[in-house]
Nucleic acid binder design. Sequence first.
DNA 1: ACTATTTTTTAGGCAAATCTAATTATTATT
DNA 2: AATAATAATTAGATTTGCCTAAAAAATAGT
Lengths: 220, 220
Amino acid sequence: MTLAEENYLKAIFHIEQETGKGASTSSISKSLNTRAASVSDMLRKLAEKKLISYEKYYGANLTNKGRHIAIMTIRRHRLWETFLVEKLNFGWDEVHEVAEDLEHIKSDQLINALDTFLGYPELDPHGDPIPDANGNWQKIDKKTLSECQENDQGTIVGVKDSSAASLKLLDKRDISIGSTFKIDSIESFDHSIHLNIGDQFLLLTKKLADNIFVSIVQQP
Amino acid sequence: MTLAEENYLKAIFHIEQETGKGASTSSISKSLNTRAASVSDMLRKLAEKKLISYEKYYGANLTNKGRHIAIMTIRRHRLWETFLVEKLNFGWDEVHEVAEDLEHIKSDQLINALDTFLGYPELDPHGDPIPDANGNWQKIDKKTLSECQENDQGTIVGVKDSSAASLKLLDKRDISIGSTFKIDSIESFDHSIHLNIGDQFLLLTKKLADNIFVSIVQQP
DNA sequence: ACTATTTTTTAGGCAAATCTAATTATTATT
DNA sequence: AATAATAATTAGATTTGCCTAAAAAATAGT
């Protein structure tokens, strides 16, 4: 597995997830910032290696083998992002590029020890799920807090408006990235939200809730 | 800076340190496990970029620019080795290859945060000095404990015979990799050594001292 | 249904880093 | 000092991953 191959598989994985279909040449080209001609070339090679199934002019689909590699790459990426934020005090918006490099270091001993060191986290700093060593992960749903329903529970993963004022207000209410919550009730009149967050009980206006991204654990 | 270029500069640095002279094509070829022809090629390129001075048939010497890159690569390598041993519980003999990959990730934010996280260590798990952010490091001298003199102080960095029996004996005496010591006196009759190690006072036979590698801080 | 537009692929090149084989320079030996 | 042995370099190929330009296929618009 070369670095470039891993990046292609990861891109195809994300496109498959988002669209529910195969990945077209142009979608991959856009996602990786390479020319369509280069993508065609690489798709041919990946198909030869049985990492994707590929019909000329009709895009690519991961095989089980290819999907497994993509998932393990995503696992490494998200574990490193978690490390950078939790241990090295990076901001959650500063981690992506460095993790993009770290993810390509393929040592099971390294990545499993890192997982243990971090306490087997299930979500990364952006609220995306971290696949475990077997490639399984928690299914989650990302949306704004105002789109949630009563009894939903999840984690705060970001804010729409990351201006100082907005962050200050959240800070004042003791809400931070990573806080977990459960929605108690929603007022139908003004859509204000009552919720338990950390160990406190809070009331949030719709306007504030609109500004908060959360990831909701999918109830089985 | 590509990965290959960094590896060449690092190899030349180590050869310069060991021999006190420039690095010949064959010495680099041996150290990197590449053919001499490939080395000639790369030396030409590194010289064009002013990272080494190079006279055909007479080997290579680092320029200040090239040396700085080599030292920063070594800094990254040794910080990662320290991280692997201290935080991820790798054995000191299991870290090299993984660190060989990690060292090529060039983010000052990453490496300086890692340095802080580790508490600005001065020696790596093998007792080799870690250059600081300015490229300076503690001068040390690696030898066996039996070669030391009275008043020498340093750190235990390894054992010659790493069999279970040998490690068991050291364990029994509470001597481990990373322990710091100061030599109190040496018996001229049987060369046995009295030393302070950790917070205890110990007597070691010459035979045991022969088996222990230490790194001695060079007194200014 | 036919043409225009968009997407994808092929063809041909380039740079990095390696290799083998052949050549040239340096060093050692008699 | 001439030659043998060793070391280093050049020449020519290969692989990976990208590019541009041109051709071919699929899709969209009337």
